[in-house]
């Protein structure tokens, strides 16, 4: 004769087994989703050239320094894809074990858009009457009074709009130093390899975001410059 309390314990244990089974299944699926999100396999353009020497400005969290390092990698020829591949290679370098500036692995950049400078906006043409169908008004360039306003002041100068993935940004370590070093590293690497890029703006999943991980400003436009610093952390080229 099995006593009542033994039966209760038995069914409790059965419930535990079933519960643990469900938990395992849920966590397994969650882990698979996480790995799939990180391993974004959106293809870049296939490299059409042999490997070439590129300069990567690599950061070090210990002394806050950024040093230029040469790497041999294959890059696409098209400038947008080239910029994206450079940043992805840079982040991949930081994701390696033992990195002095550890960052999450996976694709960091969704897309890079290169726009000729100066970047011009459009505004509603207040002088135009609304059309009869939907009440929409025409837009005109902001500097329409200047016929040359839309032409780049310095031929070749470009604004790079870097659209970061939220999977990368949400896992980025938080802190003034670590976030600033990531941005400076990207700016320096672009400056060293794509000199036509003069300014950089950052988006996250296509949207403006206030900070990278709570500190470094992502709303401003960054001038691209040489960010290599001395080992003591003081920048030689501020």
């Amino acid at each position: 004769m099995i006593q009542r309390h033994q039966r209760i314990v038995f069914w409790c244990l059965i419930a535990c087994i079933v519960g643990m089974g469900i938990l395992l299944a849920v966590e397994r699926q969650r882990g698979r989703d996480r790995i799939q999100a990180l391993g974004d396999a959106t293809p870049l353009d296939a490299p059409t050239a042999m490997t070439e020497a590129v300069t990567m400005d690599l950061a070090n969290d210990t002394d806050g320094a950024i040093t230029a390092n040469s790497r041999q990698i294959a890059l696409p020829r098209e400038a947008n894809s080239r910029a994206r591949a450079l940043i992805d290679h840079l982040i991949a370098e930081y994701a390696l074990p033992g990195s002095p500036h550890p960052l999450p692995s996976g694709s960091a950049v969704a897309e890079v858009f290169l726009l000729p400078l100066p970047a011009m906006g459009h505004a509603v043409d207040t002088s135009a009457a609304a059309n009869s169908s939907g009440g929409f008004k025409a837009t005109v360039p902001v500097a329409s009074a200047d016929p040359n306003a839309l032409q780049p002041k310095e031929p070749g100068g470009e604004l790079a709009v870097i659209d970061l993935r939220s999977t990368f940004v949400n896992q980025h370590p938080s802190g003034v130093e670590v976030e600033s070093l990531t941005l400076l590293s990207i700016l320096g690497t672009l400056h060293a390899n794509l000199p036509q890029i003069e300014q950089v703006r950052f988006l996250v999943d296509g949207q403006a975001r206030e900070t990278l991980a709570g500190h470094a400003d992502l709303l401003r436009t960054y001038p691209v410059r040489d960010t290599v610093s001395n080992p003591n952390g003081g920048q030689l080229n501020p």
């Binding site: 002394d63 003034v176 600033s180 500190h215 470094a216 400003d217 003591n232 952390g233 003081g234």
Partner: peptide, 22 residues
Amino acid sequence: LVTSSASVRPVDSLTCPALVFE
């Protein structure tokens, strides 16, 4: 010590000698 420059809001909007101290 590490010294450098950084863009961390709201330091760019301050009208005083201002430092980000981490």
